[in-house]
Design a binder for these strands. Structure first.
Lengths: 238, 238
DNA sequence: GGGGAGCTGTCGGGAAGCTGTCGCCCGACT
DNA sequence: AGTCGGGCGACAGCTTCCCGACAGCTCCCC
């Protein structure tokens, strides 16, 4: 499985006053092999930051007490340059956040999809690692995905994917050659709280297949159905 | 027997208000060499978690009193990051669960098959163990089963199994070289409460044998009948 | 702010594959 | 030689999957 960020365990601090959300993020991160710690208040966040020394912070801006900006200011005041990825409500303070996202920082609007959050965290870490960071390119067979340029190619042919298709394909790529259930794909790629208990995943996979394989030259299919279980992305079943 | 998670005994807490279900799970886990403790109420669950320090929790969401979510919140509030596998009724709170399971935790719909639950528990444990988890591959003779890719091979030949066949074979593999009765196989691989007191097991074994041994080169049979008792998977009968 | 283009998800029909029942045959043990 | 458990062909009902058609939505451009 592609490993993005060094060999060390990444240390992540998650700050959100909504425990399920904080816990969700922490759990996903651990699932990726990171170390994660949560804080539900601004004060707690500062305390944790002081003794946990995170490599990256996920910070909700809507905190009771000391709000997200306050936490950020105090973090910076204490001299740490740890990169931060902000979480904000949709119609919230997007403009003010935008001003803060220079450097290695970034932000995401709630509700978000966990794969997207993890992708951004990886990107931010990669960039903050130094000026000489290398491109992140996922590859399976003759299919490549450049996560910086968002270019996806089958061989030399450039594919034009919609955002959803891109996310599903990225997840399949990252997990290849593991077989994923539709529920896993739905849970990781769609926003938490998405109700659709439907066949969206099937549909997106169907559209992806068409784009991946459309060239007349009969390229071998890359996305395989494991009937009764899910989908895999990999070369040649046998 | 393949061992999935370290050398220590896994400590499992099972929380379900239906004692037969909780006990069923606990019994199976103990049979696997784990330590298992049950709780039938939310309050009891929290108490047990506090002094038993489980490595993993099976948590029914439909609890009287403090419900599953409440238990989870309080567990997290007390700082424990123990992974959880949820149980839910079919058309129940599936959406709310989804929000919680996008992490590395997992969930299962009742009624479930015991082997499937154990498989998921092992997977969750494996992944939460750290970034360096390795593939889980079961092997007996020249038969291999990769639990991540779901690839099953006899030698180099790739087999194509249906979900039921896959589950039965996995159970036989995991228990090899123990002889299993048809009742054991039925009880572990089929959902509890399955009515078919029939010859389904024979039938699936029959189909499996054909697929395992079909190659013209007369590979030695791997599934052996112990007449009047059951089946074993192992090389060379004696 | 009106119109258009593209994206996303719902519905539903049709095809393919999977599962369990029936029942006959066979081989093993008595 | 008889009895009984096991093997397995055939089949029917059901589940799963695929994908065409369409409608609501968003975003962008004029």
């Amino acid at each position: 499985m592609p490993q993005y960020v060094g060999v060390e365990k990444v240390r992540l601090l998650v700050v959100d006053d909504d425990p399920p959300i904080a816990d969700l993020v922490a759990t996903v991160a651990r699932y990726e092999g990171w170390e994660a710690v949560t804080a539900y208040t601004g004060e707690d966040a500062l305390r944790r930051a002081a003794d946990f020394h995170p490599d990256i912070v996920v910070l909700d801006l809507m905190l009771p007490g000391v709000d997200g900006f306050g936490v950020l200011d105090r973090l910076r005041a204490s001299g740490t340059m740890v990169p931060v990825v902000f979480l904000t409500a949709r119609d919230g303070v997007a403009d003010r956040v935008a001003g803060l996202t220079r450097g290695g920082d970034d932000y995401l609007v709630k509700p978000f999809a966990v794969e997207e959050l993890m992708a951004r965290l990886r990107t931010v870490l990669r960039r903050s690692a130094g000026p000489s960071f290398q491109r992140s390119v996922l590859r399976v067979g003759d299919l490549t995905m450049d996560e910086d340029t968002r270019e996806v190619r089958r061989g030399a042919r450039l594919l034009s994917l919609t955002p959803t298709e891109y996310e599903v394909l990225r997840y399949l790529l990252r997990k290849s050659p593991t077989v994923l259930t539709k529920a896993q794909i739905l849970d990781h790629v769609w926003e938490y709280g998405f109700g659709g208990r439907s066949n969206v995943v099937e549909l997106v996979v169907s559209r992806l297949r068409r784009k991946l394989d459309e060239s007349g030259d009969g390229a071998a299919p890359l996305i395989h159905t494991v009937r009764g279980f899910g989908y895999v992305l990999r070369q040649a079943a046998e």
